[in-house]
Design a protein around this nucleic acid. Structure first.
Lengths: 348, 348
DNA sequence: GTGAAAGCGCTAACAG
DNA sequence: CTGTTAGCGCTTTCAC
């Protein structure tokens, strides 16, 4: 009775069995054809393929994966609003495919925490999880690894159970500082990433390297965060200082962009008055009109290294902890320190 | 022989049957408990739940969905690098959940076209597809709708078979033009979205409204695109004009940001010298240091409206074509036209 | 080269 | 309230 009110849903999807029937072969044979594996004559192959086409057959990935022992799925958790994550996911799509896996995405948003995101991946029976910029503690990661092979990207895992591929944060900051110092900068500000992963390492690297140059007293440190707003707030604070820095090392590109925006609003010229260097070499920094000097993480390499370790771990090996070397990308937001012009800085 | 070399994968995942065995009940009963539906005594319920916990049982979504007639999955295609899409996906997560569905994501990247992305969704047996900023033609969309209920967001579908939820582009541009004209601007530039969805509507809306104000001759149109670079290039071109515009209507926020960057680089003050207005009210435009005037699309509303139509379509009804009204958000990048100061424009 | 049969993990219908 | 049975769509033996 009540069923009468339910509008009929569109006709049942066409299954492999339908195709097999129509082509006059067994489902098993049809399966062989659809998967393109050997075991069928060219004639049958063609016939089955054509009927499948005509019927508009679409294989059911769910059923495929269920029957197969392995799901062939790699899960990735990432944040929707982190351009660097976007770059990474883009590369992961290809790295994952190179190993014959499919990528399953699970976003972290303000309404959807990491726990939920990872849980979804597990319910999907992903064979491994890749966490971009995870905020889990080493303990949490260790616990998670008991349930699903896990890798973190852009940070260390703190446990041998969880693989990690990251760029050497200390080295990155060191390069940035060295670059600025070589340009004659001495009073340099580092805006940290707040509680973002990698922030502590970068901050420590900064003070250490400044001290190495005998510039410990001129090393300025201000708490920031991973967004433009964080950078903007921090630089606003800094502009109120008695002795303003001539260069800024921002936690990441987004943070640096916030800095750039504020400086330009206030008619502080970059890089003539103040140099700014970012971190990530996200496509943001590459945009011609921003053209920001930055520390590059090799996104494509990170993706391939991660997948190499992931597949190894799936095969039963222990995951690796890979630390990649960062690279300095000099663009247009860093230049000679203003005071460096007086003592006769070389100009081309 | 060769099998000897394959390292044993971690122990088999625990299945519902395992839990049932351990708890001494039938799989069916265990299923009832896990799903939290009625049909089990509190005692059994507790016992099963506890053993599930102990065994670290995680339901297999694949198997669940396979057995259920409905997959309970809604698929969404979007671009990783469009902040507006990020905003939308974020809202879709909640709207989809409100209707008891799960969201399945499929990204479009330079290496992964829309066709592939949608295909993945179909193989997942999604009950419906939501396409953000699709570039398919009406014909392609119509064809697709025969295979999966489809909705497009942020553009019209051009066919009654495909639902759409968009913001009235003409109205949006009209509001933007009116806003600028009311501020005394007359020579106004519109940077288009190139071949991006919605671009044509906005461009036409612009010229129409300028003509309405008797400003047809002062309406400048320059081809652009949906990224910062597009905006930057276009404004650079415009700055070479004999008669420069006093206001710019950009295709979207990212495009507008490119414009802002260039203007600030060139010491053109915003909004004193030139007003700039964006489109989307993406979180980008909201950032305090950018604080851009823009045309808002109600992202949350778009998400809910879409899901309302999607569920209706799944139930067998025809999808709806919804056009939402845009809203003007005045922030700090629009102000009185420079020439408007002479004839005694009111100042506060 | 081809088909029959079994079952992946789960849930829906039914029977006790 | 509980258990049995059947099967979702596919792939995988294993026969023929």
């Amino acid at each position: 009775m009540a069923t009468e009110f339910i509008r009929p849903r569109r006709q049942r999807r066409v299954t492999l069995a339908d195709v097999a029937d129509a082509a006059g072969v067994s489902p098993a044979l049809a399966s062989i054809v659809m998967r393109g594996v050997s075991g069928a004559s060219d004639a049958t192959r063609q016939r089955v393929q054509q009927t499948a086409e005509e019927l508009g057959y679409v294989p059911d990935r769910r059923a495929q994966k269920l029957r197969q022992i392995r799901s062939g799925l790699i899960g990735a958790c990432f944040e929707l609003h982190q351009p660097f994550h976007g770059d990474l996911v883009e590369q992961l799509y290809v790295a994952v495919a190179d190993h014959g896996f499919d990528l399953s995405l699970s976003c972290i948003t303000p309404n959807r925490d990491e726990r939920t995101a990872v849980g979804d991946l597990m319910r999907e029976r992903c064979e491994a999880a890749i966490l971009l910029g995870s905020r889990m503690t080493s303990e949490e990661l260790g616990a998670l690894s008991a349930r699903i092979p896990t890798h973190v990207i852009a940070r260390g895992s703190g446990t041998p159970l969880v693989g990690s591929v990251s760029t050497d944060d200390t080295a990155g900051i060191t390069i940035a500082v060295d670059h600025l110092v070589s340009l004659g900068h001495r009073r340099i500000l580092h805006i940290t990433g707040g509680d973002a992963p990698g922030s502590a390492e970068r901050a420590t690297g900064f003070t250490t390297r400044m001290a190495h140059h005998g510039l410990a007293d001129l090393a300025l440190l201000l708490p920031g965060g991973p967004t433009e707003t964080d950078g903007a707030q921090a630089i606003n604070e800094a502009l109120a200082f008695d002795h303003q820095p001539t260069a800024v090392v921002a936690f990441n590109d987004r943070c640096a962009i916030g800095v750039l925006e504020v400086l330009r609003q206030r008619d502080v010229h970059v890089p003539e008055d103040v140099s700014v260097i970012g971190y990530d070499d996200s496509r943001l920094s590459r945009l011609t009109h921003i053209s920001m000097s930055t520390i590059a993480q090799d996104v494509s390499r990170i993706a391939t290294e991660t997948m190499a370790s992931v597949t190894a771990q799936i095969a039963g090996n222990t995951p690796t902890q890979t630390v990649l070397a960062p690279r300095l990308i000099v663009r247009d937001t860093t230049g000679p320190a203003p005071s460096a012009n007086e003592p006769g800085a070389s100009r081309i």
